[in-house]
Design a protein around this nucleic acid. Structure first.
Lengths: 191, 191
DNA sequence: TCATTTTATTAACTTAAGGTAACGTTTTTA
DNA sequence: TAAAAACGTTACCTTAAGTTAATAAAATGA
């Protein structure tokens, strides 16, 4: 479990044993049961999440309807906007499956950054990578039709389609569950 | 012009005169004529752009059609994905109007970071802010209908609707120019 | 385990977006 | 400045997404 985190970090910086120990002492690992809510709309939090095993999702509650906009699976993180802009959260974050995640706080980060400056540089790299990736994701979403988005997801993250409920996947693709159902029927007919 | 950049930076870190001088010596300012292409699809670049005055856009060329996905105006930057992932650019970047921009390279950044580490911390902050913002933008795009997206843009960036050609705005909103035209007609009729 | 809730699909109808084309207007540029 | 290109709008038709509702299957929980 710790090793999974070390391996991830090692893609960006080299960790000394000393640093690994400090990281372990932070005791950031926790489990989340399926359906457990990690962050609620309206709350302010300093906590960031990182998925070691499992899947968590971001969703909005609009007119009593859940609108899922993001899924985070193994080695993907969620930094709620409220951590950055200090405003009440606009969305919920909850576990899609029983999951193992890390929970970090801004304070914890600050402490790490002071002791080990290279952690801050790692965070910069990760942010920049994610920013570029999210730019491409948004672009793709704008350019593709709903059906093309589904086909693209089928290629890029086939696992998601298996492990996530269809109605959550639908809003993730920007359509209604009925539309997604029809899309799937349409695509099956073609083959 | 330099002052505009200093003011922006001062939102994140305090600059000494010394640092300001180094920044000026980097000679990052340049102008871009309307329509000028700053980055082409397929190219690899280390250059990042930041708009002091004017407007630049990101667009894809798909089946001979330009699909605009982003506009950057005063105090907004563009870090092409190729700077981050070292792959050929998937998109074009060009000036919508005659503009004043800064052009920075990775090398230039590295040098600055070594001399003034706090610049790197600033970049981390900016990335994190943009990342949170882009997450919200993508969420909004998924949740809203095309017409709602247009109305939202009308509220949040009314200037864009004035200064940018309609057909570019259309793909930015994820619809065809004809659809945008109809949407506008529909909305006008209601009022 | 059985009742309740949630989920996925299908259908019928409504609404709006895509595609093609035509038209007048504006902007470019030779 | 005149010809050409690009632009914005409208119209018509097609396609697909939203809405409402019904139903069957699956998951949940008392």
């Amino acid at each position: 479990m710790q090793q999974v985190l070390f391996d991830y970090i090692s893609k960006y910086i080299d960790l000394t044993e000393d640093e690994k120990n400090v990281l372990v002492d932070l005791d950031v690992f926790r489990t989340a049961k399926k359906g457990e809510i990690l962050l609620r709309e309206g709350e302010k939090t300093n906590n960031t999440f990182f998925v070691i095993k499992g899947c968590i999702r971001t969703y909005y509650l609009i007119d009593g309807e859940e609108k899922t906009t993001a899924f985070s699976t193994e080695l993907e993180g969620v930094t709620p906007h409220c951590v950055i802009d200090k405003s009440p959260s606009r969305y919920y974050v909850s576990a899609v499956e029983d999951s193992i995640i890390t929970v970090g706080s801004s304070d914890m980060e600050e402490e790490m950054f002071e002791r080990f400056p290279k952690f801050e540089i790692m965070c910069k790299k990760v942010s920049e990578e994610l920013l570029a990736k999210r730019h491409l994701d948004l672009d793709e979403f704008k350019i593709l039709s709903p059906e093309q988005r589904y086909l693209s997801l089928l290629e890029k993250r086939p696992d998601l389609i298996q492990r996530v409920p269809q109605h959550q996947l639908a809003s993730f693709l920007g359509v209604t569950p009925q539309s997604l159902s029809r899309m799937r029927a349409r695509i099956n007919k073609k083959n």
